[in-house]
């Protein structure tokens, strides 16, 4: 059902083919800006806090793919403030399907395809440059860790937007701010102070999107093992997202008549 809803949106958007390609191109361009920055930094210094260029690109790519997944699977959550304030959630509440999924599939971020393409190219290139000793077990765990990392990212987007149940503004300023915190974890977590590090790995575990999974795959640093906790972080984030919706819906007042 969820897939069908998204699929229908893709078909609807593809009717405007030119728009589609412009979007894909535009997004690719915006992602490249971040890369140019990384390139510029590494042109001057060979390492940031012991992390090399391709290691940072790996983290960066995970975050980018995560963002693409959010755009693909949870873009509708950005409409939550509008849905809540205009009482548009009513129609979802009278349907026998979890509201959280109806909201997430309410819209499709067409940039998703551009973001995912850029992210994937970066990921593949970085992994090719970095000499990781792959064994079947290691590859299997890496897949699980990466998949969990993406779940963390998507859930955090949904949680940030669920704030709309409590904050009655019509624009998701808070959510956008919270989401941008994630950009901090495009770079090695070790460059930040203890407080920020703790914050980004526990309360708002953005570090589990890029940094910890990458550190584990690379076996880099003393805390590389933390990457193995990514599935736990994912379970935690999904639970919080579901609970946020459950409690949020109890507060939902609908609107007008």
């Amino acid at each position: 059902m969820y897939r069908r809803s998204l699929g229908a949106h893709v078909r609807a958007s593809l009717e405007y083919e030119a728009d589609f390609w412009i979007l894909v191109f535009g997004v690719g361009l915006s992602q490249c800006v971040g890369l140019v920055f990384i390139g510029a930094v590494f042109a001057k210094v060979p390492h940031i806090n012991g992390w090399g260029l391709w290691e940072v690109v790996l983290m960066y790519s995970m975050m980018t793919i995560g963002q693409g997944c959010s755009e693909l699977f949870a873009e509708g959550s950005w409409d939550l403030p509008m849905l809540v304030n205009r009482g548009e959630l009513d129609r979802m509440l009278v349907r026998p399907y979890p509201v959280i999924l109806q909201v997430c599939s309410f819209r499709l971020g067409m940039n998703a395809f551009g973001t995912l393409a850029v992210g994937t190219v970066l990921l593949v290139t970085a992994l090719a440059r970095l000499h990781v000793h792959w064994t079947p077990a290691r590859a299997a765990i890496a897949l699980l860790v990466f998949a969990s990392a993406l779940v963390v990212k998507v859930s955090l987007t949904v949680i940030a937007n669920a704030s709309a149940f409590w904050l009655r503004g019509t624009i998701s300023t808070f959510a956008a701010g919270a989401d941008q915190l994630g950009d901090l974890t495009r770079y090695p977590l070790t460059i930040y102070g203890v407080g920020l590090r703790a914050f980004l790995s526990t309360a708002v575990p953005f570090a589990f999107v890029g940094f910890f999974p990458a550190a584990w795959v690379l076996g880099h640093g003393q805390s590389a093992w933390v990457g193995l906790l990514t599935p736990l972080a994912a379970a935690y984030c999904v639970t919080v997202a579901v609970l946020a919706f459950r409690f949020g819906l109890r507060r939902y007042d609908s609107a007008g008549n």
Partner: peptide, 17 residues
């Protein structure tokens, strides 16, 4: 909510579904 939703049909005149 979901069990109830299966039993009912709702039409809001002012708002499309």
């Amino acid at each position: 909510r979901i069990a109830n939703a299966r039993n009912i049909g709702v039409v809001f005149g002012q708002r499309t579904q």
